[in-house]
């Protein structure tokens, strides 16, 4: 019962997000809006109820299950993108390398700068 009560909260929050998206024509999915609303509400409240924690853990642990039907589609719509595969694979490989490198460098230098500032104070 506890899990279902938490699930109801999640569904209501999702529907609130969808409602906001449809009424204010926001180009962001209802799920993301619901997630932001959820995070802000919890930050204001300062705690998570057990019901909500159980329901969210349950759903997050089966996320892979929920996205599998979408993943499988790539095998069945492969010919739709024939001639695009070179562009796709180069973009994914090189693009990911080029974004991982600055993430590590930037984060490492900023953390180091923060530590230096802390030791100066």
């Amino acid at each position: 019962m506890s899990m279902l009560r938490g699930f109801l909260t999640l569904v209501l929050c999702f529907m609130l997000g969808e409602a906001l998206r449809l009424v204010f024509l926001i180009p962001v999915s209802g799920g993301v809006l619901g997630m932001i609303l959820m995070t802000i509400t919890l930050m204001l409240k300062g705690s998570v109820s057990d019901d909500l924690a159980t329901a969210s853990q349950g759903l997050i642990s089966v996320l892979v299950l929920l996205i599998m039907p979408g993943v499988v589609g790539v095998f069945f719509s492969a010919d739709q993108f024939s001639g695009q595969w070179l562009a796709v694979s180069v973009a994914l490989l090189v693009g990911t390398f080029l974004s991982v490198l600055p993430t590590l460098l930037l984060m490492a230098s900023l953390v180091r700068a923060g530590q230096r500032r802390a030791s100066d104070d």
Partner: peptide
């Protein structure tokens, strides 16, 4: 949809 909201926790 609800699972995305759950990521907020």
């Amino acid at each position: 949809g609800p699972a995305t909201v759950a990521l907020g926790i």
